[in-house]
Amino acid sequence: MDAFSSFFGSQSSTRNRWGYDSLKSFGQISPIVQAHLKQVYLSLCCALIASAAGAYLHLLWNIGGLLTTFACMGSMIWLLSTPHHQEQQKRVALLMATALFEGASVGPLIDLAIEIDPSILVSAFVGTAVAFGCFSLAAMLARRREYLYLGGLLSSGLSILLWLHFASAIFGGSAAIFKFELYFGLLVFVGFTVVDTQDIIEKAHRGDLDYVNHALLLFTDFVAVFVRILTIMLKNSVDKSEKKKKRRD
C-alpha cells in the first residue's frame, strides 16, 4: 500500500508540476530567443492578414488562379534568395506579397465555402488557429530537439503525398485516394508545425534570428492545415446534404 500511495503521489505531483509550472515556464528558451519568437509570430499574424486581403481581392475581382500561384512561388523564391542581413524591409514586403498571392490562390476554395455555408469557413479558421496554437505551444514547452527526429518521417510522408498526387493526375484518382490524401496530409502538416517550431527555436539558439524566413515557414504550415481542414469540412457538408436529399426522395 505504501508503494502504491507513493507511486500515485509522485504521479499526481508530477502532473500538478507540469500543469501549473511548465505552462508558464519557458526556462529552456533564452530571453533572446523569446524576443525572436515574438517577432516571428507577429510577422506570421501580419502575413495571415495579408493572406485574408488576397482572398478578399479574389472575391471582388476573381484574380485567384494559376497566375497568382506562380506569383506566390516567384515572390517566395525571391524572398529566400535575398540575404537576411540586408534589405530587411524589402524581405518583409516580399513576405507580405507571398501571403497576399497565397490568399488569392486559396480564394476559389474560400469562395466555394461561402456559397455552401459561410459558417464552415469560420469554423475551419478557428479550428486551424486552435490546432496550430496548441501544437506550437507543445513544441515550445517540450525539451529542446525532442521532436526534431520526426522531420525525416514527415519528409517521407510529404514525398508520399507528392507521388500520390502525381499518380492521380496521370492515371486518375479515386475518392478513397483523395480522402487519404486529405487526412494523411493534415496529419503530416500538423506534425510539421511541431517540428518547424522546434527547428526555429534551435536555429535561434545557434544565432539564426531570421524572423522573416521563420515566419514564412510557419505560414506555409498554417495555410496547408487550413486548406485541408476546410476541404474536409466542405466534403462532409456536401455528403450530408446529399444524404438528406436521398432520404427525401
Rank of each mutant, 00 (worst) to 15 (best):
G173L: 06
Q86V: 11
G151E: 04
L150V: 12
Q88A: 07
L80G: 00
L164Y: 11
L79S: 01
L182Y: 06
P108D: 10
A139E: 00
I77S: 08
I116K: 10
A99Y: 03
I110D: 00
R145T: 12
S123D: 10
R145N: 09
L79R: 04
A113M: 06
L141A: 11
S155H: 08
M76D: 01
F125C: 13
G74S: 07
S123W: 10
Q86F: 07
Y183Q: 13
V130I: 08
C134L: 14
E115Y: 05
R91Q: 05
V130K: 06
H84G: 14
I120V: 03
L186S: 08
G107Y: 02
I77F: 14
A104R: 01
G103D: 03
V130F: 02
V106P: 00
G151F: 02
G127M: 05
L141G: 06
S105R: 02
G103W: 01
L164F: 10
G133F: 15
L95Q: 05
E87S: 08
D111L: 05
M73S: 14
R145W: 12
A142L: 05
R143W: 09
L153C: 12
Q88K: 15
K90Q: 13
W163F: 09
W78T: 04
K179Y: 12
L112H: 09
A169M: 12
K90P: 03
E181G: 12
F132N: 02
A169S: 11
S159V: 11
F70T: 09
C72F: 10
G152T: 13
S75M: 08
A113E: 08
L154S: 03
W78M: 15
F184N: 11
H165L: 13
H85K: 12
A97E: 05
C72H: 07
L80K: 01
L121N: 05
I110Y: 01
A104I: 00
L112G: 09
G107V: 02
P108I: 03
S174N: 13
L121M: 09
M76V: 12
S136K: 06
A139W: 01
L153T: 15
C72T: 04
M140H: 06
P83S: 06
G74K: 01
L161V: 11
W78K: 07
L148T: 15
Q88Y: 04
W78V: 00
S156A: 15
L100I: 06
V92Q: 13
I160W: 10
P118V: 10
M73R: 03
A97K: 05
R91A: 02
F184P: 06
G103A: 04
F171Y: 15
E102Y: 11
M76G: 00
S123A: 13
T98N: 15
T98W: 00
A124R: 00
A71M: 11
A129V: 13
S136N: 11
V106W: 03
V92C: 04
F125Q: 07
G157S: 11
I116E: 05
A97Q: 01
V92F: 13
